[in-house]
């Protein structure tokens, strides 16, 4: 390495114009050169291993990867597993409610804070703060709050309301909604921040003109402001969706998939199969299913996004 470099220096010393050419080339391609290592890393570590996971899902791998191919057998086993069915229906319930409520609360908070309230900065920080916590902390805290014998229910009982009942956390039918509560609590503030920025970006003249025409506050928000925030809704939707699909730590901390496997999500299912049950190929098959679902949602979004950019450009 060092010898070739010094040889090169010798050469370039004799031919000054070569060195100028190199500098020019470097100047023109500096950004590409700087990006190259990260592109290679992403190609291998993200896309390479995606392909590898796909390959593993077609093999008989159990504890360690093997390359004995069995076709789509692992997918058949995956779809015959009742826990996987629970996980799939859970991700739709959780995803839908989590995205819906986070967006609604975030927007409502943003609109309220936008009313030029006193101590806005202070309130904003309070609502944004949960975002600084990890889902593990959120999950553990809510586990205590929602536990009937420790948290909310016990507190209300001690206040004298003996018949109060809030046992969703230990109820197989409702436990999935406790994940929604904790998730919404964590993410609403962040959504609020995004919406607030969008609200502040709206042209004041438009609003003033509407007021002159006699529009009320509700009408202004409904007809003028919110319709202009389409791109922000898109951003919020995509960010929340990837959070919903990834929410593994929240489940682990809050319910560990219980009671009675009722709060398993595809991500926890995948982890259990791969590392707890020595079913690496089934785990890989479930990962591919998650990937395909996300692709089915993200690709149309990217398509619309790219087409719009092109139209604008």
């Amino acid at each position: 390495m060092s010898t070739t470099l010094s040889e090169y220096r010798g050469v370039s010393g004799r031919h000054g114009e070569n060195s100028a050419g190199l500098r020019l080339w470097l100047g023109q391609n500096a950004s590409q050169l700087a990006l190259a290592p990260s592109v290679v890393v992403v190609l291998v570590v993200v896309y390479g291993f995606m392909v590898w996971t796909g390959v593993i899902s077609l093999t008989a791998s159990k504890m360690l990867p093997t390359y004995q191919f069995v076709g789509f057998e692992q997918y058949e086993r995956l779809w015959s597993n009742p826990i996987w069915h629970i996980a799939v229906s859970n991700i739709f319930i959780f995803g839908f409610l989590f995205i819906g409520f986070s967006t609604a609360f975030g927007l409502a908070l943003a609109i309220l804070i936008d009313q030029k309230v006193r101590a806005e900065g202070f309130l904003r920080t309070i609502y944004l703060y949960p975002m600084a916590l990890s889902f593990i902390v959120t999950g553990t805290a809510w586990k205590w709050i929602l536990n009937p014998g420790l948290g909310l229910e016990r507190m209300v009982h001690m206040w004298g309301w003996e018949s109060f009942k809030f046992d969703w956390l230990v109820n197989t039918q409702y436990a999935i909604y406790t994940l929604v509560i904790a998730g919404v609590w964590q993410s609403s503030g962040f959504v609020m921040a995004l919406f607030l920025a969008a609200l502040r970006g709206i042209d004041d003249d438009l609003i003033k003109a509407a007021r002159l025409d006699g529009a009320g506050t509700v009408q202004i928000y409904r007809r003028i402001i919110i319709p202009q925030m389409g791109p922000t809704f898109m951003t919020v939707g995509v960010i929340l969706m990837q959070q919903a699909v990834k929410s593994f730590d929240l489940v682990v901390a809050l319910t560990s998939g219980g009671p009675g496997n009722s709060t398993n999500l595809p991500a926890t299912f995948m982890y259990t199969q791969t590392f707890g049950r020595d079913q690496m190929a089934v785990g890989a098959a479930s990962a591919i299913m998650i990937f395909m679902t996300v692709t089915a949602i993200i690709v149309p979004y990217l398509y619309v996004d790219i087409r719009n950019n092109r139209n604008e450009g």
């Binding site: 009742p82 197989t172 219980g258 009675g260 496997n261 009722s262 707890g276 079913q279």
Partner: peptide, 14 residues
């Protein structure tokens, strides 16, 4: 073992 764990736990809670 995982099958037993899944079924028994689901049964006990459901």
């Amino acid at each position: 073992t995982g099958v037993f764990l899944d079924v028994v736990s689901t049964f006990f809670e459901t």
